[in-house]
Design a protein around this nucleic acid. Structure first.
Length: 597
RNA sequence: GGGCUCGUGGUGCAGCCUGGUUAGCACACUGGACUGUCAAUCCAGAGGUCGCGGGUUCAAAUCCCGUCGAGCCCGCCA
């Protein structure tokens, strides 16, 4: 008989009755009746109830075991009495009387309880991650992650993609987030950068003729964390295809995402392919965000013209000065108490708005604080623009367009939530397309790339030469699920001439472009295929499928919000001789902040 | 860099607004009782400088100021 186990703790059934078996696992729970002791032994696969009575010489040892100690038990499987069967346990029809017991590893009293789903502080959970990972939920999330990644990999390979690895020690990318830098010992004063994404490598692989690339790619960005954004590092399903249009990219990845979500969504509805395509400008207008949550049925309407020259002075004057008015409908809100409207107005002020105008459509007319400024004609036009019907309320946001869109988007999200309109048990995908190529930096008044500088401008060189840069769109798209941005992607700019021009508009000279992306630019001078791709975030996909709202719940060893690994104590100091070897002298900020290590 | 919230035995919470008994409850821990439980039950016990520093007060977990830490958000995230 194997010295550690003949079966796993999730394996024993009626058919094993009478078999001599040996199990190893963690002591999950103990029920001590004085002369009868139940031990629940747990491993990755399940839990098996083991039992001893007072006549056993092992009884005292077993009684004294602390939870989470690792033990090995042996005995002959017996059936449970009919009334003692536990239907909630896969192994619940049998139990194991313990004839032999050895302690492989005893546990100290626990800083967090493994056999409970009680909440523990984030710091404790991270410091004792190995304990947290034993707990059912997190353990399950990490298993789910593995299965999701395996499914993605299988589907990508079946779709004809080839998996690659690309360098982790590479060069600093010129745009975007801060890089993590790694000093070179051999080249004093020079640094590698960890890739923010394998962007240039995958484009080089396309130029090398591999046609369809993918990678479960680690990406490193020195940016602050959020609930849905792990600081430091994360994983993307990075893929790229040659000789494709935007529609070809969509058609390639939609079945993969749809398939993975169907496979793991547990019966929740998943948007069938093709996913809706929403141009960026429309997304901002109708949903007030570039990552619309399509589970929320509410649509924002432009009612600027309704309030233009109206007697409601705050709006009318703002409109004359260039503001717009956006309306968010609140279906059947007329029955809501006054406090509902007051609370929403208060919340809007907390968001930085002066307030939230509204009218309630009731008794064939309009009610509410600004209703008296809305005559019958304007009321009819409001109804027509918003689809608002008797019994609905309409909330108004008035500001310059970008701010109005953004706040209206928040109002839409909030109303959808508060009124219980957001679809449950569904994964609703869409593409947001036609992002602007450039945007104006309000602080510097300079034109900057609004997304990826390697995207192909719509209209090509011609557009760059003839159009107002702020009107040019790019073949740039995001995929969004339930209001979570899963990825952005693009048809790339594979033409050096167009690239020089595109960068020139953003203020980069030919020399700068060559200095910064010489490698890729040079490659494009020797025959580059038109190509494009995208890179959905693996962590976010798993987060959605696991029903979690925090990305740390699907990462085995995440960092905290300050980008520290409190389990491994990273980042940490290094001995002076290592710094010397790397030609590095520290120039630390003065200590008066009081912060150490 | 900024805003909000939180910080009370190992852990989760209560007490704080309205200052005044021995800081309370649950889980875990230690000891005891108990032969069919499956969150076992029952009894007892140990464990707290109320994050830290300063101030107000006869008196501070409680009020004030500062500071440190955590989470969430803004900035940032091609």
């Amino acid at each position: 008989m194997h010295s550690l186990r003949t079966h796993t703790c999730g394996e024993l059934r009626r058919e094993h009755i009478g078999h001599p078996v040996r199990l190893s696992g963690w002591l999950h729970r103990k029920r001590d009746h004085g002369n009868l002791l139940f031990l629940d032994v747990r491993d990755h696969y399940g839990i098996t109830q083991c039992v001893l009575d007072g006549s056993s010489p092992l009884f005292k040892t077993a009684e004294a075991l602390r939870l989470e100690s690792v033990i090995t038990v042996a005995g002959k499987v017996v059936p449970r009495a009919p009334g003692a069967v536990n239907p909630r346990l896969a192994t619940g029809e049998v139990e194991l009387p313990v004839d032999a017991l050895s302690v492989q590893s005893s546990a100290e009293p626990l800083p967090l309880q493994v056999n409970s789903d009680a909440e523990f502080p984030e710091e404790t959970r991270l410091r004792y991650r190995f304990l947290d990972l034993r707990r059912e939920k997190l353990h399950g999330n990490i298993v789910l992650r593995s299965r999701v990644i395996a499914s993605i990999r299988r589907r990508m390979i079946e779709a004809g993609f080839i998996e690659f690895q690309t360098p982790i020690l590479t060069s600093s990318s010129p745009e975007g987030a801060r890089d993590y830098l790694v000093p070179s010992r051999v080249h004093p004063g020079k640094f590698y950068a960890l890739p923010q994404a394998p962007q240039q490598f995958k484009q080089l692989l396309m130029t090398a003729g591999f046609d369809r690339y993918f990678q479960i790619a680690p990406c490193f960005r020195d940016e602050d964390g959020r609930a849905d954004r792990s600081p430091g590092e994360f994983y993307q399903l990075d893929f790229e295809m040659s000789f494709v249009t935007q529609e070809d990219v969509f058609a390639a990845i939609e079945p993969v995402l749809h398939g993975v979500f169907e496979e793991f969504a547990g019966g929740a509805a998943v948007t069938p392919a093709p996913f809706p395509r929403i141009p960026f400008a429309e997304a901002m207008a109708k949903y007030g965000t570039d990552k619309p949550d399509l589970r929320n049925p509410l649509l924002i309407a432009d009612v600027t013209d309704v309030f233009r020259d109206s007697s409601f002075a705050p709006f009318a004057t703002a409109i004359a000065a260039g503001a717009v008015v956006r309306a968010v409908p609140a279906p059947d809100a007329s029955g809501q108490p006054r406090s509902f409207f007051d609370k929403l107005g208060q919340w809007a002020r907390e968001q930085g708005a002066p307030g939230l105008g509204y009218v309630v459509l009731a008794d064939g007319g309009a009610k509410g604080p600004i209703a008296k400024f809305v005559d019958a004609d304007r009321l009819a036009r409001l109804g027509a623009a918003t689809g608002g019907r008797e019994g609905d309320a309409l909330f108004f946001v008035c500001d310059r367009q970008p701010a109005a869109e953004k706040l209206a988007g928040r109002v839409r999200a909030r109303l959808g939530e508060d009124l219980g309109l957001v679809e449950r048990n569904a994964f609703r995908f869409c593409w947001v397309t036609d992002f602007p190529m450039y945007e104006l930096n309000e602080d510097t008044k300079r034109i900057e790339f609004s997304h990826n500088p390697f995207s192909m401008p719509q209209g090509g060189l011609d557009a760059l030469e003839r159009s107002d840069p702020l009107t040019i769109k790019a073949y740039q798209y995001d995929i969004v699920c339930n209001g979570v941005e899963l990825s952005s992607g693009a048809i790339r700019n594979h033409r050096p001439d167009i690239m020089y021009k595109a960068f020139a508009i953003a203020g980069y000279s030919r020399d700068e472009v060559e200095a910064r992306f010489g490698g890729m630019l040079n490659a494009f001078k020797y025959g580059a295929p038109p190509h494009g791709g995208s890179a959905p975030g693996i962590d976010r996909i798993v987060m959605l499928l696991a029903g979690e709202t925090n990305i740390r719940e699907v990462i085995a060893f995440p960092m905290n919000q300050q980008a520290q690994d409190v389990l491994m104590q990273a980042p940490g100091p290094v001995p002076p001789e290592r710094l010397k070897e790397l030609h590095i002298k520290l120039d630390l900020p003065s200590v008066d902040s009081g912060r150490e290590s």
